[in-house]
């Protein structure tokens, strides 16, 4: 390679490496702010501030959704399989909201540890499958009857 081109190439590579390190460090320093939500473990560890609007997210725990009759009020537990947070919400839930599915809620953490949500968004995962496959998968795990019963209660 021509020495001039070699020199230019070295300069460009060094510039890119330096830039990459700078951006990497910046992004690493901001990781707490870039995270969209606190997970239940972070909340349990006291990392999430109280009485400030924050987001919290995780999986809706199985058999934890309780609806208040004659109102839209709903209480459910959100888990990351290490810790859980109890959430309260008064409003219309997204269609994909279900037990065993992910949610991201905006709201405030009360001093008693209950998260009062103003908005609940559904977070779905990267797995897609036809309904029949999902059904037979559920049958294999054996708890389909219970899960289905809860689902109909929830959708009613």
């Amino acid at each position: 390679m021509h020495p001039v081109r070699k020199r230019r190439l070295t300069i460009v590579i060094f510039l890119l490496a330096g830039l990459g390190i700078a951006v990497g460090l910046t992004v690493y320093a901001f990781r707490q702010n870039i995270n969209l939500f606190y997970d239940p473990t972070a909340i349990a560890a006291g990392e999430a501030p109280h009485d400030i609007v924050i987001r919290a997210g995780g999986m809706v725990e199985d058999n934890s959704v309780e609806r208040e009759p004659n109102s839209l009020k709903v209480r459910f537990k959100v888990t990351d399989f290490k810790s859980t947070v109890l959430m309260e919400y008064d409003g219309i839930l997204p269609d994909l909201f279900a037990e065993g599915q992910g949610v991201v809620a905006t709201g405030r953490l009360r001093d008693d540890g209950v998260f009062v949500a103003d908005e609940v968004l559904a977070k779905h995962d990267e797995n897609y499958m036809p309904p029949e496959v999902a059904k037979s998968l559920k049958k294999k795990t054996g708890d389909d009857a219970a899960a289905d019963a809860v689902k109909t209660v929830v959708t009613e």
Partner: peptide, 11 residues
């Protein structure tokens, strides 16, 4: 993968 996001990981 690095952060908590609403967007799901790659399929």
């Amino acid at each position: 993968e690095w952060w908590n996001t609403l967007h799901q990981p790659a399929t």
